[in-house]
Amino acid sequence: MTDIATPTPVRIDSPAKRIAKQFVEDRIAVIGLILFVLIAIIAIAAPWIAPQNPYDLMQLSIMDGGLPPGEVSMATGQTFWLGTDPQGRDMLSAIMYGLRISLMVAVVSLTLAITIGTIVGVSAAYFGGRFDSIVMRIVDLQLSFPAILIALILLALLGRGVDKVILALVIVQWAYYARTVRSSAMVETRKDYIDAARCLALSNRRIMFRHLLPNCVPPLIVVATVQIAQAIALEATLSFLGVGVPITEPSLGLLIANGYDYLLSGRYWVSVFPGVALVVTIIAINVVGDRLRDVLNPRLQT
């Protein structure tokens, strides 16, 4: 009697809720997420919570240079819990500020690269034909070179600076997103709802961004989490090699590079602590990314 007229309400979770639910099933992923949030908070709040502004030369004194963890400043009486680098920078503060730069560079370059890559990828898939093949040959060409090489050459041309590092990262990363978005958009373009939308004579822009794009998002998120860790690592590598951020405003990679010379002579803290911070950040993002990939990929669902 009641079976047709009033079907039992089956609770269908919204996609976001389903993903969140599945995500928390993996404890390691949750720890990774918590760590990442903590790191992000530290990075954002660095100017207010760091004991020293390591980028302000007025606050530094080389007389405090190279102190081991726990020593007290001769000039200001502050305690350097993680020691100082040869310039007298408090390593704790430098790591906080370094995280800030590293994350900022990664997030900004990621946003820009995703935007460019998505527009290019969706357009290529939607319009197809010659436009598609030209754009994709460019993407192929770029992906055939190691990102680090291109970034190195670009920065050698542009010089040091946070803005230049971001530009270089955008240039080496957009192609990944263009390729990812294009391939999922290719699949979607052939589906009926796009034909339906076309029949309704909707504008190309509307179809691309209101109908096509939302269906390409899941793979994009997966690539993005992998790439953000990659971007942080790439920035660190570039700064380590001496072409990244300015030396008076070190990011994590530059801090590691500065301490590298002192590693063997026993002043481990200059290099090791920023190294740990970098590794923890990258692993936290990776763990979250891996879990997201599992959750978002329907083929891995059991």
Partner: peptide, 9 residues
């Protein structure tokens, strides 16, 4: 005097 250090190879 506020200095920005421009270091290169």
């Amino acid at each position: 005097i506020s200095v920005s250090v421009d270091a290169s190879t």
